[in-house]
């Protein structure tokens, strides 16, 4: 087998000068010797959950601010689950799941956000 036809990993292939613009297409997977990320993710999700609980139970903020803060904590936790446990950025090439996911988050935010927004006009509805 000559030097030119020796198998190379995709990692090496996309480091070729010609193919650098195509690096977003290279396979991407994480390997760990110990499930550190999973354990940290679990601890992080517990902290976020109990953080929200204590914020609400001790009424540390006025209602609207409190709801906003705990919703932000929930979004952090969703991002944590997606990133740590669902391996969202992993794929054989481009992580195709990202595009429909961005789109559906946009639609879902629109649906729920607009519903909450319209209910703020109590006098106008009844």
């Amino acid at each position: 087998m000559s030097e030119a036809t020796k198998p190379i990993t995709a990692e090496e292939a996309y480091n070729n000068e010609n193919d650098k613009v195509l690096r977003f297409l290279k396979p991407r997977f994480h390997e760990e010797a110990f499930p550190t990320i999973q354990i940290l993710g679990y601890i992080g999700s517990l902290i976020l959950t109990f953080g929200a609980y204590f914020l609400v139970m001790n009424h540390v903020l006025p209602p609207v601010a409190l709801l906003s803060v705990i919703l932000v904590l929930a979004v952090f936790q969703a991002a944590l689950q997606l990133g740590v446990f669902m391996h969202i950025r992993e794929g054989r090439g481009l992580a195709w799941q990202l595009i429909p996911l961005y789109f559906v988050f946009f639609v879902a935010l629109g649906m729920v956000g607009m519903s909450i927004w319209i209910m703020l006009f109590k006098s106008g509805v009844s």
Binding site: T5, P7, I8, A10, F29
Partner: peptide, 16 residues
Amino acid sequence: VPLAEKTGQHQLPIEF
């Protein structure tokens, strides 16, 4: 150039 992933010399996670 043959890719090592295709020739099985560099392993992807088994589900992929």
